[in-house]
Computed example of a mutant assay.
Amino acid sequence: MEAPEELLQTLTRVSSALRDGEVPFALTGGCAIYARGGPASEHDVDVLVRPQDVEVAQQAMENRGMSTVEPPEDWLVKAFDGDRLVDIIHRPNEYPVTDAVLKEAEELRVGPASVPVMPATHLLVDKLLVLGPHRCDMSQLLPTARALREQIDWDAVRRDTEHSPYAEAFLLLVERLGITEIRIQEAAEDPERGKEPN
């Protein structure tokens, strides 16, 4: 399953707009999961920016013909590329986006664009921290955990979500399903694997 072409086009426009506006950013959310080999996103484009860059980011989007609105939530701004939504997030899960956060991102190819993409561990932590009594569908997270499991630092996920009983329940589930087991048996059995030829 491929990410919709229109969403990838929006991602390219967003990336180009933010680079032209000299706004440090990183891709997060569903498109970032797709970039790292997870399920395709069909919803929106999510980018992280520092709080001090929000207005510049808004202006950069508007300079590309997108409209922006400030929703009731105080942790993001929304932009629209036609009918496609872009979330400009500056305080996900009650922590501010900083230079240190953005430095964790890795430049990856996503469709026609090359963009900084947040690590898989960060992506899963963010998804787990939005789980709650009114939003507790873990079925959407299981394919992500399966696809990205070898990229995820599971100890870090446990540490960063230890205050959430919903995250704890999900981590128990993936442990019982064997998803958190990293498959390194072949490398252990073949010590010559990966060595340079003489």
Score class of each variant (00 low, 15 high):
7 L>G: 12
7 L>Y: 05
10 T>P: 13
12 T>W: 13
12 T>P: 01
15 S>G: 06
15 S>M: 09
18 L>N: 06
21 G>T: 02
24 P>A: 03
24 P>S: 07
25 F>A: 06
27 L>P: 13
28 T>W: 14
30 G>L: 09
33 I>S: 12
34 Y>S: 01
37 G>S: 01
39 P>E: 07
41 S>K: 15
42 E>N: 13
42 E>P: 12
46 D>T: 02
48 L>W: 01
49 V>Y: 03
49 V>N: 05
53 D>Q: 07
54 V>I: 12
55 E>V: 13
57 A>I: 07
59 Q>W: 05
59 Q>C: 02
59 Q>Y: 04
61 M>Q: 06
61 M>L: 11
64 R>T: 05
64 R>D: 02
64 R>A: 07
64 R>V: 04
66 M>C: 06
67 S>G: 00
68 T>A: 14
70 E>D: 12
76 L>R: 14
77 V>F: 10
77 V>S: 07
82 G>T: 10
83 D>V: 13
86 V>K: 02
88 I>P: 11
89 I>Q: 07
92 P>E: 01
96 P>G: 03
102 L>K: 07
105 A>R: 06
105 A>N: 00
107 E>N: 05
107 E>A: 10
108 L>G: 01
108 L>W: 05
110 V>Y: 04
114 S>G: 00
115 V>N: 03
116 P>Q: 07
116 P>W: 01
116 P>L: 07
117 V>L: 00
118 M>P: 13
119 P>L: 08
119 P>R: 10
119 P>V: 10
121 T>A: 06
123 L>T: 08
123 L>F: 05
125 V>E: 00
129 L>S: 04
130 V>H: 00
132 G>K: 03
136 C>H: 15
138 M>A: 02
139 S>I: 05
141 L>R: 04
142 L>M: 13
145 A>P: 09
146 R>A: 11
150 E>T: 10
152 I>S: 05
153 D>R: 00
153 D>T: 07
155 D>V: 08
155 D>P: 08
157 V>R: 00
157 V>D: 14
158 R>V: 13
163 H>V: 15
164 S>L: 12
164 S>G: 04
173 L>W: 09
173 L>D: 14
174 V>F: 08
174 V>W: 00
175 E>C: 11
176 R>C: 12
180 T>A: 09
183 R>D: 15
183 R>A: 15
187 A>K: 14
189 E>Y: 15
190 D>R: 15
190 D>S: 15
193 R>L: 04
194 G>A: 06
196 E>I: 08
197 P>K: 05
